[in-house]
């Protein structure tokens, strides 16, 4: 236990003391936020007003939608950056210093995962607090205790899923250079995969199918439904059901694979299965090779 604790603390310190790393783990989030403040937010608001009329709560709806998306993005990018410590340790040989010590290699591997969970959670939590303030100043309300707990639960699950995935990928990456390329690719695509730059409903069926089987869609959909509940109640209170159904389909408040609509349990299981698959693959990979 002491070894695991010390290793996790070490990994966390290394991440937190490198300000550039902390900044870069939020780069995608910052870019998305800027795009929304500059023009995407206004475009979305205008388009909604055009469709549904200038009804109360649109700004709240749009800001909650974007904040839910940003939360999902940070559950992907923060754990990924934290796992960079593993790549660094491998490329500069620090891992050899661990390997000549009498420590269990599973504990060593676990220490990287646990630190990505903890830092991921803390950082995304800060992100959430800032998001809440943003929503509040855009005419929204703060979330209540139970939705906050539900939301943080989904956030945690999302972090565990993506860190499990990226941990497996990290086992194949030997250099920090390759890792930063991965970071750039993920950072570029995550805004699209989460259906944030462009609402998922206006993309072609094939693209939607691919996006919907990925856990980014599962995570963002669950988070949106929790985050936007208050705004939805206000905006869609006086409109026919079809109006909300259309909105929900275009703006990714539901996940359909083909004609099959996934409910919350399906979405949660989707993320759990994703996490378990890559965890098992990592264990298999580690059983016949070094970290």
């Amino acid at each position: 236990m002491t070894i695991l604790f010390q290793l996790v603390r070490r990994n966390m310190r290394i991440y937190l003391r490198d300000r550039a790393t902390v900044f870069f783990s939020f780069l995608s989030v910052i870019i998305i936020l800027l795009l929304y403040i500059l023009f995407l937010g206004e475009m979305q608001t205008d388009s909604l007003i055009q469709h549904f009329g200038d009804i109360e709560g649109i700004d709240w709806l749009v800001s909650a939608w974007i904040m839910a998306g940003i939360l999902t993005v940070s559950t992907v990018t923060v754990p990924l950056t934290v796992l960079g410590t593993l790549i660094q340790d491998r490329s500069n040989g620090t891992i050899n210093d661990f390997y000549v010590s009498p420590i269990n290699r599973k504990i060593l591997a676990l220490s990287y995962l646990i630190s990505s969970w903890i830092i991921g959670f803390v950082m995304v939590f800060f992100n959430f607090v800032i998001g809440q303030i943003y929503v509040y100043f855009n005419g929204g309300e703060f979330l209540h205790f139970i939705p906050i707990m539900q939301l943080l639960g989904v956030v945690m699950l999302s972090i565990v899923s993506f860190s499990s995935f990226f941990f497996y990928i990290s086992l194949f990456i030997k250099t920090t250079n390759a890792f930063s390329i991965l970071g750039t690719i993920v950072g570029t695509f995550i805004g699209f995969l989460g259906g944030i730059y462009i609402p998922i409903g206006i993309l072609s069926d094939n693209v939607q199918f691919v996006m919907n089987i990925l856990p980014t869609a599962h995570s963002v959909t669950l988070l949106r439904n929790i985050y936007m509940k208050g705004a939805i109640d206000v905006v869609f209170s006086g409109t026919p059901d079809e109006v909300f159904d259309t909105y929900s389909m275009i703006y990714g408040l539901e996940v359909n694979i083909g004609d099959f609509g996934l409910n919350n349990i399906h979405l949660l299981f989707g993320m759990i299965i994703f996490a378990v698959i890559f965890y098992i693959l990592s264990v298999i990979k580690l059983s016949n090779s070094k970290l």
Binding site: R13, D97, S101, P102
Partner: peptide
Amino acid sequence: VVFQNSMLDDLLTVKENLIVRASFYS
């Protein structure tokens, strides 16, 4: 083992580095 290249963590103090490594030997 003293390796050819430095293997301790740049961002930790020497003491913090030693505390982490000492835990490996209980």
